[in-house]
Design a protein around this nucleic acid. Structure first.
Length: 396
DNA sequence: TCTGGGGTCCTAGGACCC
DNA sequence: TCTGGGGTCCTAGGACCC
């Protein structure tokens, strides 16, 4: 079967570009978007700021040291989300097969769109120019035959890059890249790989086909995934389904370190309220409530509890979170607390469960607690199982 | 009366991505 | 004045069931 044309489109410096669109006088200036308070970091910065060494995830105070004239703006999610919708609706005019990878990037299947196109380079250049003219947004485009290769391609040139990678180009274009630029190899794994002599993606591939035990051990299950990716056999399935959240959480770095339960309690109340509101907005209930705490040494701990009945009620979420906290808190100074609702389910599915439940309990006039528990168990199982099957499919 | 084996769920921790 | 906050997925051990 002929290869598909898989495209990755990445909006360049998206938050910063949005601010320039709002206020054109910012154009060409060093701009960083992010929080300026305690622990604030750079979320995104303009290309002008990058020239000074400012980069994403950098502490804001450090960014200011590098670039004293840096203009710092708070995050305006509402505006960015509006611009993101305009981006996706623009891409939707070319193909219906679009997978939102995040607010500012997507994968799209252009196989059909390109069926009568003689000159794909001009075609994508025009798409890029049209997007810029219509929305003001700049993008880099990667074109290939799998999602992995398209993603790597879009990273080659920013801003307004267009890079095509054929399967035959992998040794030329991908292998010379540094190991840390490989998608899926992050800041924990790349030093480990370097420690066993892997400097480039090509080194990694050589060691993979040699079945090097060190590399096998470091990569775990990723060993097989990365091998496929580097042989051009990665996934080319663009998943068009609307994003369906699997967890909804909220966390916050405290304005000051604290070991005072009555102070911390207030934050848990706010977090539970926020998680509850967002779950209701997304129309989700969750079986599992998880808390996360991070101590002043940056060590994180998760604790969670799974309930018999799913909830998005702020009081239930708070009570469970607060119980988890009290059961596990050792009195150390904390810097961050968070609450997450997991094992999500649609209330619609819940309604199906409930009607089955009613039916079952009428069947058995003397429905005892044991029977109720059994029913809950048997109903819950397939729903949770379904989630894990979806997971498996997603990886295949 | 030396204790299998397969499967699922729950939990905790960790890696990665934007 | 070190190091955000939103997520997803993977691993691994124990409980429990058949």
């Amino acid at each position: 079967m002929a290869s598909k044309v898989i495209v990755h489109i990445d909006l360049n410096a998206f938050f910063a570009r949005c601010e320039e669109i709002k206020d054109p006088s910012l154009e060409g200036k060093a701009v960083a978007i992010g929080h300026e308070g305690r622990g604030g970091i750079v979320s995104t910065c303009s290309y002008a700021a990058r020239k000074y060494g400012v980069s994403s995830a950098m502490p804001m105070f450090k960014a200011k040291q590098l670039c004293p004239q840096l203009i710092i703006l708070p995050v305006d999610y509402h505006f960015y989300s509006m611009m993101s919708k305009r981006f996706f609706s623009f891409i939707g005019r070319y193909t219906t097969s679009v997978e939102a990878a995040s607010v500012d990037e997507c994968f799209a299947d252009f196989t059909f769109a390109l069926r009568d196109v003689d000159d794909p380079i001009s075609y994508f250049k025009k798409l890029q120019d049209d997007l810029f003219r219509e929305t003001g947004l700049k993008c880099s485009i990667g074109v290939s035959t799998t999602k992995f290769l398209a993603k790597m391609a879009s990273d080659f040139k920013k801003p307004m890059g267009l890079t095509i990678i054929h399967k035959r180009d992998i040794p030329n274009m991908i292998f010379p890249l540094k190991i840390e630029s490989m998608f899926g190899v992050g800041k924990k794994t790349s030093p480990r790989l370097k420690g066993v002599g892997v400097q480039t993606i090509g080194d990694l591939y050589q060691r993979i086909i040699d079945e090097d035990p060190d590399v096998k051990n470091i990569l775990g299950k990723m060993y097989f995934t990365l091998k496929d990716w580097l042989e051009g056999k990665g996934s080319d399935e663009v998943e068009t389904e609307k994003w369906d959240p699997k967890s909804i959480g909220n966390s916050t770095t405290l304005p000051f370190d604290s070991d005072n339960p009555s102070v911390i309690k207030k934050f848990f109340l706010d977090l539970a309220k926020e998680v509850s509101e967002r779950s209701k907005r997304e129309d989700k209930l969750g079986y599992t409530i998880q808390i996360v705490i991070k101590d002043v040494n940056f060590k994180s701990f998760n604790k969670s509890v799974t309930l018999d009945n799913p909830t998005n009620d702020k009081n239930v979420i708070f009570e469970q979170a607060w119980q988890l906290f009290n059961k596990n808190f050792k009195g150390v100074m904390l810097r961050l607390v968070g609450v997450t609702l997991q094992n999500l389910i649609d209330p619609k599915e819940m309604a199906v469960q409930m009607s089955l439940f009613d039916y079952e309990s009428h069947q058995k006039e003397n429905a005892t607690k044991i029977i109720i528990n059994d029913i809950n168990r048997s109903l819950k199982k397939p729903l949770l199982k379904r989630a894990s099957e979806v997971k498996k499919d997603g990886n295949s």
